Simulated assay, not measured.
Amino acid sequence: MDLRLDGLSVVTDGKSLVRGLSLDVPDGQVVGLVGPNGSGKSTALRCVYRALRPSSGTVWVGERDLARLSLRQSARTIAAMTQDGAVDFDFTVEEVVALGRAPHLQGNQALSGRERGLCERAMHQLDIGHLAQRGVLTLSGGERQRVLLARALVQEPSILILDEPTNHLDVRHQVELLSLLRGSGLTVLVVLHDLNLAAAACDRLGVLAGGRLVTSGTPADVLTPELVADVFGVTATVVPHPLTGGPQLLYSLGSSR
């Protein structure tokens, strides 16, 4: 399912956080948002998973205006893993993952056999099956991150929104998570700070600065030394990845502006 941000703006307390952002996320593609801290990336995502109402503009889900969908309808279509996805009660891992089925259930309806299988498969994919009976509050930050992503996958969304999903993850789980996204077939909009991970994981990138879209395109088109210097204020050499040929950035320490 296509996702489209159409002239999205967010103004809070007289300050423009996002300014006229238009971005297409085609069906089945992984599109990354990159930019410096405070550039509006997370604010834009909050508009998509309805934690924040845009001041103007429209989020289109396929041909439908997101604002016209019921909360249950949008929760069946869009799943999100946020930076602040805290779990305050010590549910077990399998209980937290099962919460992803909530938009599809009525009242205290029990999970079906199929739904229990979805939960088990998601926990296996995220390498947390062995933690199923652990209290989520006893987990490390990286383990908890994978639990929350499993919960989002169990929701069976068409669109997946991820805000810094690789935070707290070790290298192995970063690679596995991004590989999972690439092979999921879902429409994915993801915020990443690591430009090399973004280049490897994303079909397209949108670069934000000061709440505005600076440019968008393939990682090879977007991640140039000139753009990295202008937007991020650092000097970088761009080299082809030895296996994939995609762009990889080598930073020069001590040469930031």
Rank of each mutant, 00 (worst) to 15 (best):
M1N: 14
L5Y: 03
L8H: 00
S9F: 10
S16P: 12
V18Y: 12
G20L: 01
S22I: 05
D24S: 15
V25S: 02
P26G: 06
V31A: 10
P36M: 06
P36H: 07
G38Y: 07
G40E: 00
R46Q: 14
R46H: 15
A51I: 00
L52T: 03
S56C: 11
A79M: 02
G85Q: 00
F89W: 15
D90Y: 00
T92C: 02
T92R: 13
V93K: 03
G100Y: 09
P103D: 08
H104F: 03
H104L: 10
Q106M: 14
Q109F: 08
L111R: 08
R114T: 15
C119D: 12
C119F: 06
L126Y: 04
H130A: 10
H130S: 07
L131H: 01
Q133A: 14
V136S: 03
S140W: 06
G141P: 11
G142A: 00
R146L: 08
V147P: 00
A152Q: 10
P157I: 08
S158V: 05
S158T: 14
L160H: 14
L160K: 04
I161V: 15
I161D: 02
V171Q: 07
Q174A: 12
Q174T: 05
V175L: 15
E176S: 13
S179W: 06
R182D: 10
G185S: 04
G185N: 02
V188T: 13
L195H: 09
A209S: 15
P225G: 13
E226K: 02
E226Y: 07
G233T: 12
T235Y: 02
A236K: 02
A236W: 00
V239I: 14
T244C: 08
G245R: 08
G246Q: 14
L250V: 15
L250F: 11
